[in-house]
Amino acid sequence: MTRKTAYLLGILAVVIIGTFLYVDLCSECRIASNQEAAITPQSITTLPTYPFLVNDGDYSFEANENFNFNESSPSFLMPISGELKNGIFSLKDYLSSNNQKTIDLTGFYSDKEENHSSFSTLGLARAHSVKNHLVLNGIPSEQINTMGKLKEDMIPNKGVFWGPIAYNISTTVEEPSIVN
């Protein structure tokens, strides 16, 4: 074996051993794989889930997916589904062509959860998390309202709440200005 071949085999062995140790010892990798393991079709159908449903007389979009949250967490889980991304883009197009319309986001929370956010309720923090994502995708923040609501019948599935966000479209009415 030549010296060059020995070096190449050594580099290959280091890459393989490094990859194995990274996957085996990386705590974030194990958390991600545990979250993926928690997502099964059987578990989704047995516990309450809340779909991405936006309905206004002129506009309607429904997706089975929604923003999901870990228990006691204000941040939604990534990645989000392609179906949900399509819903966001559809909603953006609708709101951009209807400036008088606003989307109301209601974040739900359970009384068993702990609120470690700076918001008054975990539901409000979740609604703001989704609002920030919608703003990043081009929906003006002026057209998004947020609120939180206690929902006692929420049950986490292996530590994950499936879609604790509700959507409602409302129309803002501008008052006529009085000129003296």
Rank of each mutant, 00 (worst) to 15 (best):
M1I: 10
T2E: 12
T2A: 10
T2H: 07
A6G: 01
L8Y: 13
L8A: 15
L8T: 08
L12E: 05
L12G: 06
L12T: 14
G18P: 05
V23L: 13
L25S: 04
C29N: 12
C29D: 01
Q35G: 03
E36M: 03
A37M: 07
A38L: 11
A38S: 15
T40L: 14
S43T: 09
I44G: 04
L47I: 09
L47Q: 05
Y50N: 11
P51W: 09
N55E: 14
N55P: 00
E65D: 15
N68S: 12
N70V: 02
S72W: 03
F76V: 07
G82R: 11
L84I: 08
L95W: 08
L95P: 02
N99F: 11
Q100W: 07
G107L: 02
E113G: 12
E114H: 12
N115A: 03
H116R: 09
S117H: 02
S120D: 12
G123D: 01
A125E: 06
L136I: 01
I139P: 00
I144L: 11
E152D: 13
M154R: 13
P156N: 12
N157K: 04
W162V: 09
G163S: 06
I165N: 09
Y167N: 02
Y167P: 03
N168I: 07
S170W: 01
S170E: 14
T172G: 05
T172M: 04
T172Q: 15
